[in-house]
Each structure stands twice: as structure tokens, then as C-alpha cells.
Write a protein that binds this DNA or RNA. Sequence first.
DNA 1: GGGTCATATTGGATTCGATCCAAGTCAAGA
DNA 2: TCTTGACTTGGATCGAATCCAATATGACCC
Lengths: 136, 136
Amino acid sequence: MSDLLERLRGRGWRLTAQRRVVAEVLDGDHVHLTADEVHARAAERLPEISRATVYNTLGELVSLGEVLEVSTDRRAMRYDPNAHHPHQHLVCAKCGTVRDVHPAGDPLADLPDNERFGFTVSDVEVTYRGICPNCA
Amino acid sequence: MSDLLERLRGRGWRLTAQRRVVAEVLDGDHVHLTADEVHARAAERLPEISRATVYNTLGELVSLGEVLEVSTDRRAMRYDPNAHHPHQHLVCAKCGTVRDVHPAGDPLADLPDNERFGFTVSDVEVTYRGICPNCA
DNA sequence: GGGTCATATTGGATTCGATCCAAGTCAAGA
DNA sequence: TCTTGACTTGGATCGAATCCAATATGACCC
């Protein structure tokens, strides 16, 4: 993740303690934390960090393409640091657990021209739902 | 949509003026209204209908499988009466317009067993994003 | 038609996630 | 070290959705 910090610095990001901590919190494999969870973990290291800053930083990381926003339910948005490896999500309908998955095929290619209605289609998002082994 | 009302009556639904109006509002082709929009349209016919009742009724229709909930952005949930014909959604990233689309292939079948992690996968939801002709 | 009762409706309060804002703080270049 | 524009803060605010106790009403029975 220090790569990430370097990359952002190169783009003129001012490196603050708060941003560093948020980036470190996200630097786990396969985490899909809510903003509040990110805030809680960040606050363990930097007790005074505010929610607003966590939201700001997450928003910046998203628009820089370093983190993905995924909305798996009607509750809180989740933040996925695995932005540089295309993947989709498998969500447990009971406990909300999220796993990264890699379906075969290219869903974008599966949308024929006559089903695009003149849209310039740039992105597709696939969410699988089911029951995880723990909840079954 | 009177089919719908009959079907629901058969399941013990008590048929009230409010529920009838909500069902009628949803009885349009390819509409993807928010709860507030449903409420506004319902209120044209039945001025005293409350938001709470609209939410209740929509929730019931969803759990009865007669209407689909689609969350196309981080804003309000949308309600899709086209529940009996499998389809996916194409969303304009600018204006939010939603169109029903029918991609080729079966995304469920595209998720291999070794990518299911023991989940019982029951459903998949595909959202295409792009820019519509009007916004381009 | 009238009575009964379980179910539905109401609107105001409440929750929860997210955003906004003005005031204070601080990283980084000179 | 100084300066400055960008960053952070926490409290207010917003918007969607849910909850609740009081009231109203559809459906069934006679």
C-alpha cells in the first residue's frame, strides 16, 4: 500500500496523518468495510480522526480509482481496495459477508448492440446473492 | 394489473383503496419509480395517502415477488413492476434513466463452483452503466 | 344492513448513512 | 522558519426509510 501512497503523492496529494491511516486500514486483502468501520479502525491508531475526514478520504480514493464503492444492501456503502483486479461480488443475504469472485465470460460483451439503446456503455457490475456456508 | 390484484386477494391480501392505487401506479410499462414518486402519483388519485403506507405496500409487493427493488445509485431505491420477466438494468450515469435490458448468456452459469465458496447462490443482478443518447 | 375484530393507515418522531459548513490546523515549498 | 492553500474538525443538516401508538376500515358473519 506504500505504493498507493507514493502514487497519490505523485498526483499532488498532500500526505496527512489521517489519509495515511485510512489508506493503511484499507490495505487488507479482501476487506469490504463500511465508512464507519474504516473510521473505527482508523481511530484505533489516530483517536481524533473525524468521520468527515474518513468520508472525504474515501471519496477521493474512489474518484482517483484506487478504491471501489460497492453497495451490497440498502444500508451502508462498502469500500473495496481491490480496485486494480477486475472482479465481481458474492454477498450472503443473511449475514452480509462479501467475497470477491471471478465469473467466466465478459458480461459487457453479452449486451448486444440492439439492447444498448444508444447508450455508451462503459461499465458493468455483477452481484451474486445467496447463503454462505456459515448461515446455511 | 387487475390480475395482480386478483392474485393478491387470493393470497389473503386485504384490498384497500391505498393498495389499489399503489398497484395501479406501478402498472406502467418499464417504469422505475422511487417510493416518493409512487407516493406523488398515488396522491393524485387519493390525496390522503401517506408515505408510510406507500412504503408498506411496496415492501409487501416486493416480498410477494410482484415487484423488484433496484438500487441504481446511492440515492432512493426504485421499484420495478416487471418482476415476471427476467431482465437486467442499464443506467445512465448522468441523468439516472433506467432501461430494462436482456443480455445474452446466463450470468449465474458463469460463476464456476470453485468460485462459490460453499454459498448457495440463488440470484444475480447485473447493472450496466453508461451515458444515454440524451446526455451524450 | 349492522356488528365485530383483526388488519391497515396515518403522520409525526426517529434512525441511520452521508454531506455540508465555517473555523481552526497543518504539510510542503520557498 | 514563514506562508499559504489545502486539509481537518464536529456539529448541523439532509434525505431515505422505518417505527409507533392512535385511529380507521375491509371482510366475514349474522
